[in-house]
């Protein structure tokens, strides 16, 4: 071994190089390039124009709000469905095997297909609307509605399997004995769930929440097809700007969107820190 390799000061960066170097090259590099790009005018001079546009134009501000809304709302709804669902598929019931295979299907369906499916099936005058019309019912407005209910439904439909998959395994990783121990110590089923199982499953739930949040916040196809044309999220506006060839604007929007995604994540962490932190020091055996 050469002497230089034995020198710890040299060895450390060398050992870190594959990991940190990879991050710098494939994550830091493009990020830095996009950031620099967002501060340039066509002639290369420095400008804040692109950022000013984001924070002064009503469409952009609304887009930012819409992006966060489309990120957060589906996650909340999905979580409310996924947690009970993952508890249910832990139990034995007739047809469980078939169900636990079927519920994963949406994972394989691309967002754009989901969007089109919503249009065909849930649009007023669409498949379901026509099917229930003879019964005197009509579907509420789900497509292009101001609250983006269609977008949220589509995202939820797509997220639930992924979330359920992760949360199910998070719950499954909790030893049965710990559940039993809680019961023997006087905790009811519900209390055991809230005080023992949820905190222990928190890392899994957090991972599911973060991944789906980032996914739906950045999704383009579903809000573009199903969402209202009035409130367009930044992802959709970015593509519009890209089509205009305004790359610095696209970069700036990407920066702002990323910054807000990080902000939401930080807020989430500080909200769940008590549960998450307690577990962080624990160790599910």
């Amino acid at each position: 071994m050469p002497a230089s390799l034995r020198d710890r000061r040299l060895l450390l960066p060398l050992l870190l190089a594959p990991g940190v170097g990879y991050l710098l090259l494939f994550f830091g590099g493009p990020l830095a390039a996009a950031f620099i790009g967002s501060l340039r005018l066509e002639d290369g001079s420095f400008t804040l124009t692109w950022y000013i546009r984001i924070f002064t134009r009503p469409s952009m501000l609304r887009g930012l709000g819409t992006s966060i809304y489309y990120g957060v709302a589906p996650v909340i709804v999905s979580l409310l469905v996924s947690v009970p669902l993952s508890l249910a598929i832990r139990r034995h019931f007739p047809g469980r095997k078939l169900f636990s295979g079927l519920y994963k299907l949406p994972l394989a369906v691309p967002g754009i297909i989901v969007g089109l499916m919503i249009i065909v099936v849930f649009e007023r005058g669409g498949f379901i609307d026509r099917a229930v019309a003879p019964l005197g019912f009509g579907l509420p407005k789900l497509v292009r509605d101001d609250w983006g209910v269609g977008v949220i439904l589509a995202s939820v439909w797509k997220q639930i399997p992924f979330m359920t998959l992760i949360i199910t395994s998070a719950f499954a990783a909790i030893p049965e004995d710990i559940r039993s121990a809680s019961r023997t110590l006087g905790a009811s089923r519900l209390t055991t769930f809230l005080r023992v199982e949820v905190p222990l499953a928190m890392p899994g739930i957090t991972a599911a929440v973060l991944l789906t949040f980032i996914g739906s916040m950045g999704s383009y196809a579903i809000p573009d097809i199903v969402g209202p044309p009035t409130a367009r999220p930044l992802s959709v506006l970015m593509v519009a700007e890209f089509n205009q060839g305004r790359f610095p604007q696209v970069f700036a929007m990407g920066m702002v969107l990323s910054a807000f995604a990080v902000a939401v994540l930080v807020a989430y962490y500080s909200l769940t820190s008590r549960i998450g932190d307690a577990h962080g020091r624990g160790d599910a055996r």
Binding site: P175, D177, I178, A181, L185, P199, A278, H279, G282, A284
Partner: peptide
């Protein structure tokens, strides 16, 4: 009734 488990079943987050 209280029980002591083979795996101890301590709450790891407490």
């Amino acid at each position: 009734i209280a029980m002591v488990f083979q795996s101890y079943a301590l709450f790891p987050h407490m």
